[in-house]
């Protein structure tokens, strides 16, 4: 029974840890499917986290915090768009720039406004998204097997967690069942064809980046307002890059993205849980190895050793109308 409880606990933290990855990964999905590489997921999450926690603690409202997180994150996505769509700059360079501006400005502004060493004030109840306890969760807690699964795994998360997982079928529906999605995918594969059909490539790509900004904003808000009751400097700690890795791992497909993020979240949860205690068969595994595993897996996948990851064809190339 102890083993079962331990497994449920690991799966529970898997869910919690994979939510920001999942949101960021889906965010990247929109922009990369539209042909815009986005290395700036990390930075957009970070400004989202900062704006969310700062607004929530100033206005004493979790919802306003979330709104501000989305707003600022979208604004950063628009900078990326301005550089890489309007001015046809290098998308990777622009993404790198956004990450630095985000990393620096959140610390500087945080210190100037709150004077807590780059932190925002600890969020009070009502300023953060609390866990939602599903009906009957307390009652069935003691039921064997199903009890812990229902009360711990399914119930007891914040609204953003459910939102993140609902975004998976929603994104699938948007991309593969709507006109907007069809055009978005087309613009990532062959923008000239979309242009010929009389649809603005630039506006379509801007809209894709707005979707990206919204999702990274929610991801950031989750980090600072659910997982951590306040903003801490550099709190994304490479999650944007892991999300990028997950996106490649998922071969740019929404449902795969969920599984990839759950896998990477599981590795993270496992490495926290084990913390140097030996595994049954393999023996003692260094924490650092577990932490590096998502990156190693992505490199192996990219090298084409476990299936081939083929990116959208027009990805990273600015669109120039032929004259």
């Amino acid at each position: 029974m102890d083993v079962f409880i331990a497994i449920v606990q690991i799966l529970d933290s898997t869910i919690r840890l994979s939510v920001p990855l999942l949101l960021a990964c889906l965010a990247g999905l929109y922009s990369e499917r539209a042909g815009i590489f986005d290395i700036g997921l990390e930075g957009k999450m970070l400004v989202g986290a900062f704006a969310g926690a700062a607004a929530a603690s100033v206005f004493h409202s979790a919802l306003l915090g979330l709104g501000m997180a989305i707003l600022i994150s979208v604004a950063f996505a628009m900078i990326h768009g301005f550089a890489s769509i309007t001015h046809r700059g290098n998308q990777i360079v622009s993404g790198v720039a956004i990450n630095f501006i985000a990393a620096g400005s959140t610390i500087i502004l945080g210190q100037a406004w709150f004077q807590q060493g780059g932190r925002t004030p600890a969020l009070q109840p009502g300023e953060r998204f609390d866990a939602i306890v599903w009906p009957g969760a307390e009652a069935v807690r003691d039921v064997p097997i199903l009890g812990p699964i229902y009360s711990q795994l399914i119930s007891g998360h914040s609204i953003l967690v459910y939102l993140a997982f609902l975004m998976v079928p929603f994104t699938w529906w948007v991309l593969f069942r709507t006109r907007f999605g069809l055009r978005l995918r087309a613009v990532g594969e062959n923008p000239a064809a979309v242009d010929t059909a009389g649809i603005s490539v630039a506006w379509l790509r801007y809209r894709a980046l707005i979707c990206t900004g919204i999702l990274t904003g929610i991801a950031g808000a989750y980090l600072s307002m659910v997982q951590n009751g306040g903003f801490v400097k550099d709190m994304t700690a490479g999650k944007g890059y892991i999300a990028l890795a997950a996106l490649i791992f998922a071969k740019w497909k929404p449902v795969n993205a969920m599984f990839a993020c759950l896998l990477f979240g599981f590795l993270d949860a496992l490495s926290i849980r084990l913390q140097g205690s030996p595994l049954p068969i393999i023996g003692k595994v260094p924490v650092q190895f577990m932490q590096a595993l998502p990156y190693i897996l992505t490199v192996i996948l990219l090298a084409g050793f476990i299936g081939k990851a083929i990116p959208p064809r027009a990805g990273g190339v600015p669109y120039v109308k032929e004259r």
């Binding site: 790198v96 720039a97 956004i98 610390i107 500087i108």
Partner: peptide, 25 residues
């Protein structure tokens, strides 16, 4: 005191943005 060394990270980002991604602006 309001300005820490992280100000440089912002400047660095802005330089990359304006000298790199927006070099033709």
């Amino acid at each position: 005191p309001a300005i820490s060394r992280d100000m440089i990270v912002i400047i660095q980002g802005l330089v990359i943005l304006f000298a790199g991604a927006l070099e033709h602006m």
